[in-house]
């Protein structure tokens, strides 16, 4: 049950797409690993697992901050490729019909409309105060800080919290 944790002397390079190659300090190399967050909600920069094409864990990164700058950038890029969580900057419209909430929002990736099925489960406040939203299709969105939203968005949001 020994788990390999990457250290600062190991290097991570881009392989292709969101896959990376790990050059271990001892000279061994692992290609085509997919970095994934073990805590995609609560710990974004810590505990990144690297899986091979079979989905078997090869090694784990304790914290991105422990790695050298270049490796970190590669991993960050790979992780960002893997997970798409648009930041909601404005709630343009919030309509409720038959118990389903339909939001039209402005995000850092453009404007999007989606349905929220269960406001209790699907709109949640994280411990750090950010708000995580899940739509009917299991896509995720995030509101970093609702204080920075404009009045209208805030009103629309608070009505559902």
């Amino acid at each position: 049950m020994e788990r390999i944790y990457l250290t600062a002397s190991d290097r991570v390079e881009k392989f292709e797409n969101n896959l990376v190659t790990v050059h271990f300090a001892d000279g061994s190399v692992m290609e085509g690993l997919e970095p994934r967050r073990l805590f995609p909600v609560s710990l974004l920069d810590k505990y990144i697992t690297l899986l091979d094409s079979e989905g078997v864990e090869k090694c784990v990164i304790r914290a991105l901050a422990e790695l050298p700058q270049e490796s970190r950038a590669v991993l960050q890029g790979a992780l960002d490729d893997y997970s798409l969580v648009p930041h909601i900057t404005r709630i343009l419209e919030s309509v409720e019909k038959y118990g389903t909430l339909r939001w039209t929002v402005e995000t850092d990736r453009g404007i999007k409309s989606f349905d929220i099925r269960n406001r209790n489960h699907d709109i949640r406040v994280n411990r750090d105060g950010s708000i995580r939203v899940r739509d009917a299709d299991d896509n995720r969105y995030i509101i970093e800080d609702y204080h920075t939203l404009d009045n209208r968005s805030r009103k629309a949001l608070l009505a559902d919290l």
Binding site: R36, R37, L38, F39, P40, V41, S42, Y47, T49, L51, G55, V56, E57, R117, N118, H121, D138
Partner: peptide, 17 residues
């Protein structure tokens, strides 16, 4: 192994849709 395969991994809420 199966936890890693969940989209939310260890942050997966149990007892939810």
């Amino acid at each position: 192994g199966f936890i890693v395969r969940q989209p939310d991994a260890y942050d997966t809420m149990l007892g939810e849709r």
